[in-house]
């Protein structure tokens, strides 16, 4: 049981738009255990982002129980949620969301700035280590506009890793990237998974989901399928890409 990272029970999220209620999530339950690499699939509007925002403590469910790393989220205040995000969660966005005119290293340091227990020295060391983990230590003084999309997403992943989160959440992290770069990013995620990271990954591309160990299928706010799969190797997929795909 101590291997439970995330447990949700009968989670609902209803948005009020004008006089109408939009039910984005209609009672969802699952558990994610330590070391899993979960992909959350579904058509557009099925509620994937809504779910991930709740898992990332950016949003609160309308009803239902949510536990992350043994903490019940529903009772927490706004500030406590911030602290929880800062210590336990790494978020990767589709549009990278790096701070402009701020170097890669400083971008990666950012989460640690909001943790007063971490000294300046430790902050630098950990940011550097995170950049090394994504293979960008030689780009640490580059600004986001001096990096390719794939490199920017790597910086964003390093930023998500730097606080050593219990889970890495990614919302369409490869959505803005071409196939080759997507596979490179998936190779990185698989490496992180092998190092023991727990990852939940939203995508609507089946070939990306194929690199994960478990797929949860959402449809219209319900889970329609939840099964373990044998992951394909992203590295091999990358190598087998035709060279002509490179233009």
């Amino acid at each position: 049981m101590e291997n439970e990272i995330i447990r949700i029970e009968n989670l609902r999220r209803t948005f009020r738009v004008g006089n109408e209620d939009v039910h984005a999530l209609k009672g969802i339950s699952f558990t994610i255990y330590r070391g899993e690499f979960v992909s959350i699939m579904g058509t557009s509007g099925s509620g994937k982002s809504t779910l991930l925002n709740i898992l990332g403590c950016l949003d609160k469910p309308t009803s239902g129980e949510y536990n992350i790393d043994g903490v019940s989220v529903s009772s927490l205040s706004k500030n406590q949620l911030s602290t929880l995000r800062n210590r336990k969660i790494g978020f990767v966005f589709q549009s990278y969301n790096l701070l402009a005119r701020t170097t890669a290293l400083e971008n990666v340091e950012l989460p640690l700035l909001y943790n007063n227990e971490i000294s300046t020295k430790e902050r630098h060391e950990r940011a550097l280590a995170a950049l090394q983990a994504v293979g960008l230590e030689n780009r640490m003084h580059h600004l986001p506009n001096q990096l390719s999309g794939g490199q920017q997403q790597r910086v964003a992943i390093a930023r998500a890793l730097v606080n050593d989160p219990v889970i890495l959440l990614a919302d369409e992290a490869t959505g803005n990237l071409d196939t080759r770069t997507s596979y490179e990013i998936m190779t990185l995620f698989q490496q992180l998974h092998q190092q023991g990271k727990t990852i939940a990954f939203v995508t609507h591309e089946p070939d990306i989901a194929a690199f994960t160990t478990r797929t949860i299928l959402l449809r219209d706010g319900h889970i329609t399928n939840d099964c373990a799969i044998e992951p394909k190797s992203a590295k091999e997929a990358l190598e087998s890409l035709p060279v002509s795909d490179d233009y």
Binding site: L58, K78, T83, R85, N97, L110, P111, Y114
Partner: peptide, 16 residues
Amino acid sequence: TKEIGLRMSIGAQNRD
């Protein structure tokens, strides 16, 4: 606004 959203998502509190 976007920067503020990002800072909040990685753990900045209202006070920060």
